[in-house]
Amino acid sequence: MMNRMPRSILSRLAVVFFMAAFAMPALAESTVDGSKSQRIEVAFVLDVNGSMSDLIDGAKRKIWSIVNTIIDINPEADIRIALITYRDWGAGSYEINSVDMTEDVQGLYSKLVKFGDRERPKSFNQALDRSVQELEWTKGKNAKRIAFLVGDAPFQTDDPNDPPYPQVLKRAQDEKITFNTVQVGENPDTAKLWQKIAQMGQGHYFTIPQDGGRVTVIETPLDHDILVLQQMIDKTIIPYGSSLKQAELRTKLETKAKAPASVQVDNSRYYSKKGGSKEAITGGGDLVADVKNGVRKLDLIKDFDLPENLRGKSIDEKQVFLDQQSQKRGKLEIAMTELIKERDIYLADQATTQPRKENDTQSLDKVVTETLRDQLK
């Protein structure tokens, strides 16, 4: 627990609050026209056999780094992520597990953190088919649709109940879904099949070590201040709605706070740099952001769906309280933007003085970010 605010944070906030005193008293509403934003959808079809446990752990730590790559390419992008897992147990024993296309990256991260608490059998062909047929891919030219198949072993392809994978990939091609493959380990049979799938899916084929590759943790002198500032921003979040919805939001906040420091910093960078309507946590359920962004009208929210400190108050009193929280958050977000900019500059300078070594091994986040940079041009 942070008991004292760092002096650098105090200095930054003093400047921000001074500038805000001469600004308009009400924070401006977002003017981004969502219909003009490019939608970028990325699905992961992931083998969850026991041999993949190290890679799964690395994926948990790097999900924010991956979505930050998209933000760097297009800050105004409307990002949606999906996850489908599979595991072949043989004898027709399988079950499909998936998280459909969602803008709630924080919610997806929370599910990834809990992932592995229990193992479920999966069928590859069924999972591949679901990734094309059942995920809610956006139609139209203003959407980019990219999928990654990640696994370490070939699968049974002779089950008459499963759709043939060439047929699935033909449908993906018709739907303009690009399929990339990431082979984990060095199984030669997997290599042949993954290369074929990537070719049919008009994507790229990569290989990474069995452990998923080294997870690079990047630390900077600015990270501590970013974490402290993010704690202050998170305190302005007000859960509302049913008791279940409020509990879900609090769970996401708890998961976020328990994440490794490097993950939290990547998380803060995403929220700071993402364009469009501002939010402190994805997935909705924050009264401050939802009212400010026009998602909900304050006068239509029932008292029993509000936190106790707002129940029984007049609409004007409620609005004054929300405006205060919104303005406080806005000032903190300005300070965060400056911190993130400084961190990006620091990392860029470090990259020029410490170039990548030729023998650096590939990792899941590296091949995914390289592919996204190429395919989102």
Rank of each mutant, 00 (worst) to 15 (best):
M1D: 11
M2R: 10
M2T: 14
R4D: 07
R7N: 08
I9G: 04
S11V: 08
R12P: 00
F18V: 09
M19C: 08
M19R: 14
A20N: 12
A28R: 14
A43E: 06
V45E: 08
S51C: 06
K62H: 12
W64L: 06
N74V: 01
E76M: 14
A82I: 02
T85I: 10
Y86D: 04
G92E: 05
S93D: 11
E95L: 13
V99S: 12
T102W: 07
S110V: 04
A127H: 08
L135I: 10
E136T: 14
W137H: 09
W137V: 09
K139H: 09
A143N: 04
D158G: 07
D162G: 03
L169E: 01
E175Y: 10
Q183G: 06
V184P: 03
L193V: 12
Q195R: 15
G201H: 05
G203N: 08
F206S: 01
G213V: 09
V217I: 14
V217K: 13
T220D: 02
L222S: 00
D225R: 02
I226N: 07
V228I: 12
K235G: 07
T236R: 13
R250N: 15
T251P: 00
K252D: 04
P260I: 07
S262N: 12
Q264V: 03
S268L: 05
R269I: 11
Y271F: 15
K273T: 09
G275C: 05
G276R: 06
S277M: 04
S277R: 12
K278L: 08
G285T: 09
G285E: 07
G294I: 06
V295W: 02
R296L: 09
L298G: 01
L298T: 04
L306M: 13
E308F: 13
S314I: 01
D316H: 08
Q319A: 13
G330L: 03
T337L: 10
E342A: 15
D344H: 07
Q350G: 01
T352R: 14
Q362R: 13
S363N: 13
K366L: 13
Q375T: 01
L376Y: 06
L376V: 09
